[in-house]
């Protein structure tokens, strides 16, 4: 399978680092090479947060992604910052609850999803991140559907086990839209 290099970017608190961890766990479960690298530092406090996740069949060199095959953008500044880096033929997932200006590139596929509003309307506030992981899975099939459910069970810490079910609902919502 092709290497997937995904950049997840948005505000701190939207759960992008966690969403990246779910994707990384999916790769681990399928015995592929994975790396997860967060942005760290002052930008995490109130500003933008992002992480780079690579899932590959080859040993991963740089965990820092300069040329993503997929971008998940959960706010406008993040989309602006990363949209030009996506490789031709790549995809951009934009949470159009928060992103108003859609990229004009014609060499990438842009998917618009009001993930934040959808999650909130369904009683899944704060799980737009996982809705978008579901959408990414639907559009790229980076792992088997049952794998991603296991990945969520692994990524959710034991003390928050009650949230697994809601995460699975959010995932389903993303995969069906």
């Amino acid at each position: 399978m092709q290497e997937m290099r995904v950049v997840l970017a948005g505000f701190g608190g939207q759960g992008l680092l966690f969403a990246g961890k779910v994707i990384a766990y999916a790769g681990l479960i399928e015995n592929r090479e994975v790396s997860w690298l967060p942005s760290y530092g002052p930008e995490m406090r109130g500003g933008t947060a992002n992480c780079s996740v690579t899932v590959s069949d080859e040993p991963i060199g740089s965990p820092l992604i300069m040329d993503p095959t997929a971008l998940i953008a959960m706010n406008q500044p993040s989309l602006l910052k990363f949209e030009e880096t996506v490789v031709p033929g790549g995809i951009i997932l934009a949470d159009t609850s928060l992103v108003t200006r859609i990229p004009e590139r014609d060499d990438v596929t842009v998917f618009e999803l009001e993930a934040t509003n959808m999650a909130e309307d369904a009683g899944l506030k704060g799980l737009a991140n996982i809705v978008l992981v579901g959408k990414l899975l639907k559009e790229t099939q980076f792992c088997a559907p049952e794998t991603i459910e296991d990945a969520i069970r692994k990524a959710v810490p034991p003390r928050k086990a009650a949230l697994v079910e809601k995460n699975l609902q959010a995932l389903k919502m993303g995969m069906e839209n």
Partner: peptide, 10 residues
């Protein structure tokens, strides 16, 4: 280094 310290891998 900070990259190795911050990154996650299996």
């Amino acid at each position: 280094d900070g990259m190795l310290g911050q990154m996650m891998e299996p």
